[in-house]
Each structure stands twice: as structure tokens, then as C-alpha cells.
């Protein structure tokens, strides 16, 4: 039950994009088409879960016993960067189809603040191992949900008559604001 609460809360209530503002760059950049948004979402979910597992391990098994918590930021970013490289090589060797779908998004993920954000927030909230995994997976799916919804709306917006200064980023942010408003409706779900 407790895991379900963490999952739902990361997925809907504290959606990473719409209420923590993490991963805004890909959210604005890759949300033109539903297919590419979906691929990006899955790539992020995958790396996010892996990164959270590895950084949980490093933090609790290496940094805490040796009292090196201040190295948290440096070590997490290195973990994520090398993890992304490893995943890219692994996918390229084992599954060319998957590589075709996710390939170009993987390098972008290194500088995606959502990934580092998950690792940092899991430490900040003091989650145990299983909680961290559930939290990261829920957050990844929440990111996917938000970016796919946004892509769907933007495909429709292409045909709309928008005042020229608001074309592009302007209308995207305002749409995101309205999406964030609707997501606030979920906040009563868990007390």
C-alpha cells in the first residue's frame, strides 16, 4: 500500500514535469510529435530507474559508510553520465531496433535534470531501496504521461490561429500551465 502511495504520488500528484519542473528542456524540445515523445518518455523512464538504483547503492553503501556525503553531486552526475554511455553501447549491441527508436534520445538524457532530480530527491526523502525503485519508475512514467499529452495537444495546436509572438515556446508554456492546473485536481487523491 505504501508503495502504491509513492507510485501514484510520483506519477500524478507531484508530477515531475508539471509540479517539480524537472526535465523541462526535453519537455519543450521533443514534444512535437507523439511517437518521438513516447520514445523519449520510455528512454527517460528506463535510465531514470537504473540511475536511481545505482545511485542509491553508491550513496548508501559507499558514501555514507565513509562519511563522504558531500561528494553526492559529483558522484551522481558521473554515475548518470557513465550509465547513459553503457546503456547506449548495450542497446546498440543487443537490440538494433530498440536502438533505432531510442538511440538519438539517450545522449540528451545525460543533461536531463529529471534523472539527477530523482536520485537527489530519493536521498532527500530518505527512501529505502524498494521505495526508491518505485519512486523512480513512477516519476519516469509521469514524465512520459506529461510529454505525450503535451505532444498530442501540440499536434492539434499546429492548425490553430495563434498570435505570432506567442507561436512556439510562448503557447507551449501556457498550455503546460493549463495542464499543470488540471493535474492539481489529483492532489486530493492521497491525504
Amino acid at each position: 500500500m505504501e508503495y502504491l502511495v509513492i507510485f501514484i504520488s510520483a506519477l500524478l500528484i507531484n508530477n515531475f514535469v508539471l509540479s517539480y519542473f524537472l526535465g523541462i528542456c526535453p519537455f519543450v524540445g521533443v514534444s512535437n510529435k507523439i511517437d518521438s515523445a513516447l520514445s523519449m518518455g520510455f528512454a527517460v523512464t528506463f535510465v531514470m530507474t537504473l540511475a536511481a538504483i545505482v545511485s542509491w547503492g553508491v550513496y548508501n553503501l559507499v558514501l555514507v559508510p565513509y562519511k563522504l556525503e558531500f561528494l553526492e553531486i559529483v558522484s551522481f552526475i558521473l554515475i548518470i553520465a557513465s550509465l547513459v554511455q553503457l546503456v547506449e553501447m548495450f542497446i546498440r549491441k543487443t537490440s538494433p531496433t530498440l536502438y533505432q527508436a531510442l538511440g538519438i534520445y539517450l545522449p540528451l538524457i545525460t543533461t536531463n535534470c529529471a534523472i539527477l532530480g530523482v536520485a537527489l530527491l530519493a536521498v532527500l526523502k530518505g527512501y529505502a531501496f524498494v521505495e526508491t525503485v518505485v519512486f523512480a519508475f513512477g516519476a519516469g512514467l509521469g514524465f512520459t504521461l506529461a510529454i505525450v499529452m503535451m505532444a498530442g495537444i501540440r499536434e492539434e495546436l499546429d492548425g490553430a490561429d495563434i498570435p505570432s509572438p506567442f507561436k512556439g515556446p510562448g503557447i507551449t508554456f501556457i498550455t503546460a500551465g493549463i495542464l499543470a492546473l488540471t493535474f492539481m485536481g489529483f492532489s486530493g487523491l492521497i491525504r
Partner: peptide, 25 residues
Amino acid sequence: QVMILPAGAFLALGVLVGIVHFLMD
């Protein structure tokens, strides 16, 4: 109240970016 909530951040930034584009155009 909405302006200090997450939704307000997106709305305010959207309008601000629109104004900047308008001035630049």
C-alpha cells in the same frame, strides 16, 4: 493564488516569452 503554484510559473513564463518575442519582432 494560482501564480505561486506550479501552474502560475508556466503561465507567467509563457506570457513573458510572448512579450519578449513581440518586442523583438
